[in-house]
């Protein structure tokens, strides 16, 4: 009698343990599957883009990359203009946003009174929360008219006739175009670069900073000689993160780029970018080759921005592990 009772409880407890193990296993695989899904997603995106762009790759081959002609009516497609536009608008954005972001980060970490530090930091980060379509809308209705009536005529009159750089500022002031798109992009990526820059600036040990000030260095010298050298990998990472955003940004650019598949020497001319071309044309694209050419543009963008972002992550990761 007693032995069977012990046997029964033992059995019950074993059953219980088994159930717990099953639950444990189920939870593990659920979590594992979710994590694996993220990886599958990335591979899926890459494979689907590759698959969908096969007709275009097969038809145009490598010259797709440097052919400027984009003619849906004749089924001739080349990616040169959108690639050029993507790189140029991102370059303009970086030239403006990088020094400005460094300036803001320097202000926030070195100059700003403690009590203002948080509110200003939050305000700059709110800029990052505003969706890109709002920037596009603002760029289209507010910035573009200012560019058309004030900034561009000034640029054309002042620099248009100069010998070496004149060609960059010729043509009519359309308002929209490469320069305006670059400007809107620079505003968009400003908070991203600022926030990474500020974070890496704050990784500099207080001891190092204080010793430098103690030696009689000016604030600028501390930033230039101590903070920047100490954080340079992270800084490059932050810049690349901003670049990654700029390259792939769609809506902010689509509003103000002008959507013309042409490479013009002037910064004021309308153009297009990879993402703007896809956003504008994909839904209406008819014909296998047209769709496929647009997806191949997407593939090119994916490869470029993936490389830049991966590099950025790697560089930022190396600073954090100091």
């Amino acid at each position: 009698m007693a032995t069977t009772e012990i046997g029964a409880t033992e059995q019950a407890s074993r059953r219980h343990t088994r159930r717990l193990k099953r639950q444990d296993g189920a939870f593990f695989w659920l979590a594992w599957g979710s994590a694996a899904l993220v990886v599958v997603l990335l591979l899926g995106i890459l494979l689907s883009l590759l698959w969908e762009s096969l007709p275009s790759i097969g038809h145009f081959g490598l010259p797709f990359l440097w052919n400027e002609r984009w003619s849906p009516a004749k089924d001739i497609f080349g990616a040169a203009a959108p690639i050029y536009g993507t790189l140029l608008t991102s370059l303009i954005a970086m030239v403006i946003a990088v020094p400005t972001s460094f300036g803001i980060a320097m202000f926030l970490t070195e100059i700003c009174p403690k009590s203002l530090r948080r509110p200003i930091g939050i305000a700059i980060e709110l800029l990052a929360g505003i969706p890109s379509i709002i920037y596009g809308l603002w760029g289209f209705f507010v910035l573009a008219p200012i560019m058309q009536h004030t900034v561009q005529p000034f640029l054309i009159n002042t620099f248009g006739d100069l010998p070496i750089i004149g060609f960059l500022f010729q043509g009519a002031p359309y308002g929209i175009g490469m320069l305006t798109a670059g400007l809107v992009l620079s505003i968009m990526i400003l908070p991203f670069i600022t926030s990474v820059t500020r974070d890496v600036f704050e990784t500099v040990p207080v001891m190092l900073r204080e010793s430098a000030y103690g030696m009689g260095m000016t604030t600028w010298e501390v930033v230039r000689r101590i903070i920047i050298p100490y954080t340079r990998l992270g800084l490059v990472g932050g810049v690349m993160l901003g670049l990654g955003r700029a390259l792939g940004e769609t809506m902010a650019v689509t509003f103000v780029i002008g959507n013309s598949h042409r490479i013009a020497s002037s910064l004021l001319a309308p153009g297009t970018t990879i993402s703007a071309a896809i956003a504008n044309e994909f839904a209406e694209a008819d014909g296998k080759l047209y769709t496929s050419a647009l997806v191949e543009l997407g593939l090119i963008l994916f490869v470029i921005s993936f490389t830049v972002l991966a590099l950025a992550k790697w560089l930022i990761g190396r600073t954090e592990s100091y």
């Binding site: 995106i45 896809i278 997407g298």
Partner: peptide
């Protein structure tokens, strides 16, 4: 670590690409 890295890259991947992908599937 590799999965974390991939996730961080996806975090700032161009959203229009996601549109193309979902359109395809």
């Amino acid at each position: 670590e590799a999965a974390k890295f991939i996730n961080d890259v996806l975090l700032s991947a161009p959203s229009i690409i996601v549109g193309l992908f979902i359109n395809a599937i």
